[in-house]
Design a protein around this nucleic acid. Structure first.
Length: 228
DNA sequence: GCGACAG
DNA sequence: ATCTTGTCGC
């Protein structure tokens, strides 16, 4: 698919913050997004050992699933390297360049993109999923294994139950139980979709494990690519 | 000032 | 994220 990147990739923190500020107003937090997506893509990145020159090997994978069969219908991968260090809140600048490369080689445009990490549940309301949504124009949502900002309480123990993720009084996402008795995942809006719709799709994509099949398959693929 | 901090 | 096999428990 075609992706226009409106900014150069920053090499320092201050520039990265400026880019987030500039792109944040472009996020569509209303949606409602696809009610019945036919395909959903999972995106993930794996890292190798830091090189002596300070760069880090990166492999990105995109796996498109048919929402009915939950089987892959298309995949794309890319390898690269990063010099941007890991900084909570600036995660996207470390991962997105290679992810964009992979997406550009994808011969299919999914109805929804699920990212590993946060969307609006971010200190400046512009997590990885928001950033990728703005760059691609596709509906996106974040599915994180841990909360970044926000707290929740009163979450039931059964699969399907959820509790709002609150940052002060603002709902920034949702703690969603995808497996009974197992730690929830943290869903937040990325772009062009609403929270309830995004959560519904995440639950449907995770019939057997805590993480949705999209991210499980993307995770497996990028690790495989990183090796050889 | 101290600790926390998506992947 | 990554370094890593078996193992305790439902």
């Amino acid at each position: 698919m075609e992706i226009e990147v409106p900014h150069a990739w920053p090499d320092d923190e201050a520039e990265a913050l400026r880019i987030q500020d500039a792109l944040r107003p472009l996020v569509d937090t209303v949606g409602p997004g696809p009610r019945a997506p036919r395909t959903v893509a999972g995106v993930d990145v794996a890292y190798g050992a830091d090189r002596p020159d300070g760069s880090t090997p990166v492999a990105a994978a995109v796996v498109v699933l048919d929402t009915v069969t939950l089987r892959p219908v298309a995949t794309a991968t890319a390898v690269g390297s990063t010099t941007f260090p890991y900084r909570p809140g600036l995660f996207a600048f470390r991962e997105l360049p290679t992810v964009i490369t992979a997406l550009r080689s994808l011969h299919h445009t999914p109805d929804l993109l699920l990212c590993d990490g946060q969307g609006l549940a971010h200190p400046r309301r512009f997590g990885l999923a928001c950033h990728l949504g703005v760059l691609t124009g596709l509906p996106t949502a974040g599915v994180a294994k841990n909360a970044f900002v926000g707290t929740f309480s009163g979450l039931g123990t059964e699969r399907g139950e959820w509790a709002p993720l609150l940052d002060g009084t603002e709902v920034v996402g949702r703690a969603l139980r995808t497996r009974s008795g197992v730690k929830p995942v943290f869903v937040s809006v990325g772009h062009a979709i609403d929270l309830a719709t995004a959560s519904r799709h995440v639950l449907a994509l995770a019939p057997g494990y805590r993480l949705p099949e999209t991210t499980r398959l993307a995770d497996r693929l990028c690790r495989q690519v990183l090796r050889g």
